[in-house]
């Protein structure tokens, strides 16, 4: 009985993983396809990678997206760290309820609403105070920080609330002032979660199409925007090649980060 049931469970699990990974695997395989058709195998070739590297539009957009993602990740982790400290440590202050709502709302808010709202705010602000002048990489970065900060907060907050508070008390008891305690004790202990939050914010920004479509200007198309307009016109092996590079980088990055965090975690016991 038990064997049968767990067999069924693992069949579902296998199906689930196949469902999750098959499309990605096929994408990767067909990026090496000779033919323009991405559905019929006609021989091994890396020519699409060559073409991708010659596509200045994609390269520019990729570079811009990376820059935005980097600044966004740093900004989001900074604000999220403060927000996590507020949520976990400041148990009562006026406006806490609103603060909690503001931090969690971007998690579930449909991007299309966030995008529209943020754009309208930028327009109104420009109208009122003259800043920001038009839409640019800056407005994209600001909009990205706002929504990726919510995700980063969740990650950091969960680590911070697990942290043993007596460690901070012990440091204070041994003569360290509160600010020093935060930098010497708290920050190193929650550091793995900061890294995880940074990576999450980075990918969220790199991944976002909808919000960027609203708040980016004419000269500041991000990578997802360029991919989107190209995909709308039809399937292209260049995009497969790009996807393969993406998957490769992310896999390596995640594995490295996972190893690093595992080591820190076991050292942190």
């Amino acid at each position: 009985m038990v064997g049968k049931r767990s067999l069924a469970l693992f069949a579902v699990l296998g199906f689930g993983y196949a469902f999750l990974y098959l499309p990605i695997v096929l994408l990767v395989i067909f990026s090496f396809n000779e033919s323009r058709l991405v559905t019929v195998w006609s021989g091994f070739s890396t020519k699409w990678y060559g073409e991708l590297l010659g596509n200045q539009k994609i390269l520019d957009a990729a570079w811009l997206s990376l820059k935005i993602a980097f600044v966004n990740a740093c900004g989001a982790v900074f604000l999220a760290t403060l927000a996590a400290v507020v949520i976990v440590r400041f148990r009562s202050f006026r406006g806490r309820t609103l603060f909690l709502a503001l931090v969690t709302a971007p998690l579930v808010m449909p991007e299309i609403i966030t995008g529209l709202a943020t754009l309208l705010m930028f327009v109104a602000m420009e109208h009122a105070v003259g800043w920001p002048e038009g839409r640019s990489a800056t407005t994209v970065t600001i909009a990205h920080i706002t929504f990726s900060m919510a995700f980063a907060t969740v990650v950091i907050q969960s680590r911070l609330s697990q942290m043993d508070r007596t460690l901070e008390e012990a440091a204070m008891d041994l003569g360290a002032r509160p600010l020093k305690v935060f930098f010497v004790i708290t920050l190193p202990i929650i550091a793995p979660s900061l890294l995880a939050a940074w990576l999450l914010a980075f990918t969220l920004s790199l991944d976002d199409l909808v919000i960027a479509s609203f708040v980016s200007g004419p000269g500041s198309s991000t990578l997802p925007q360029v991919i989107f307009s190209s995909v709308r016109l039809g399937v292209s092996p260049q995009i497969n090649a790009l996807a393969t590079i993406f998957v490769g980088v992310v896999t390596v990055g995640i594995l490295l980060a996972g190893r690093l965090m595992n080591r820190n975690e076991s050292a942190g016991r």
């Binding site: 096929l26 067909f30 990918t203 991944d207 199409l209 399937v235 996807a243 993406f246 990055g253």
Partner: peptide
Amino acid sequence: WTSFLIRVYAWIG
């Protein structure tokens, strides 16, 4: 962690 857009795109093919 990989691009959402690209994963949706994969289903077109």
